[in-house]
Write a protein that binds this DNA or RNA. Structure first.
Lengths: 155, 155
DNA sequence: TAGGTCCAGTTCAAATTTGAACTACTTCGA
DNA sequence: TCGAAGTAGTTCAAATTTGAACTGGACCTA
């Protein structure tokens, strides 16, 4: 290991802000969803990604990749959502070992009901606090960071 | 609930980038610390905050606030670190019910050993990917987001 | 077509995290 | 000086998360 290059003041400020904001926003939304929709954040995210997908269905591995969590975590959370009747499993017709998670009508309704309050909170804690220029830089800068790691994670 | 104001393209891009980057960076650092230092991210963070504090000690509640986690979570992780000999508990002399977590010499040494590789990874995944202007906007924008929520959390 | 290697998901045990009691001390206010 | 409310941490059970092993097919390749 060579000489470490420590972070200067600006770098440190960017780093700590990023970490703190990430954690606090997470917690705020976790609470909001639990209180107002009775869903955990991972559960809500699963519903969102399914709703976005064509036919409201996605393979388990695809879900794990999008939620940035482990395969077993997805198995568990999809099982929870299945108990709630919000998601259904469907064997993949071609790939024998494949499984689709499918959004049910009830899941879709639940998501529609939960979304407005969730979006309102997202605005309140993040979006509406920033101006357009800041949003643009965030989108661009963190977009690059995310894509680099995503590519690396898949490799 | 009034009409929800949905997110426009820019807002949505900022939001999803923020969430994805947050999760992926977290995971990358989690792995790095576990592999190269044998510490979990929360454990590492505790050591960092203690090292920053005067006399290397902090009250349990103060740690919980800085790590943005629950009180019981701190009790648990400090217990883990105590088993490893990296942290020690000390009764607070004045407030009878108070407890300090204190960084031990061994904890301090472990942190010094772990820091260079950790910083290198932080640079690799986030800092060195961005230019100075982007870092400045990140620090400013997310700084505001974090401080607002921190104030709210304490209230 | 036998044997090897991947793959997609699941299962399992262990570690962690959470919130809700609970414990004991402190601090007020009457 | 009594008792009600607060504080600071801990404990506990339940929920979640993780990685490692496992399962059963699919896909080579000789």
């Amino acid at each position: 290991m060579s000489e470490p290059r420590w972070l200067d003041d600006l770098e440190m400020a960017a780093w700590t802000s990023f970490v703190e904001a990430g954690h606090r926003v997470d917690r705020a939304l976790e609470r909001q969803l639990k209180d107002e929709a009775g869903l955990s954040h991972p559960q809500y995210e699963i519903l969102v990604h399914l709703a976005d997908a064509p036919d409201g269905e996605l393979r388990m591995a695809e879900l794990a990749d999008r939620l940035i969590t482990s395969k077993s975590g997805i198995t568990y959370q999809v099982a929870q959502l299945e108990k709630l009747g919000l998601v259904r499993r469907r064997a993949c017709p071609e790939q024998a070992r494949g499984v689709y998670a499918v959004l049910t009508d009830e899941g879709s309704a639940r998501l529609r009901g939960a979304a407005p309050a969730h979006v309102a909170r997202v605005r309140e804690v993040l979006i509406d606090v920033l101006d357009r220029e800041q949003l643009a830089v965030l989108a661009e800068a963190l977009g690059v960071v995310g894509r680099r790691l995503r590519a690396h994670d898949r490799a």
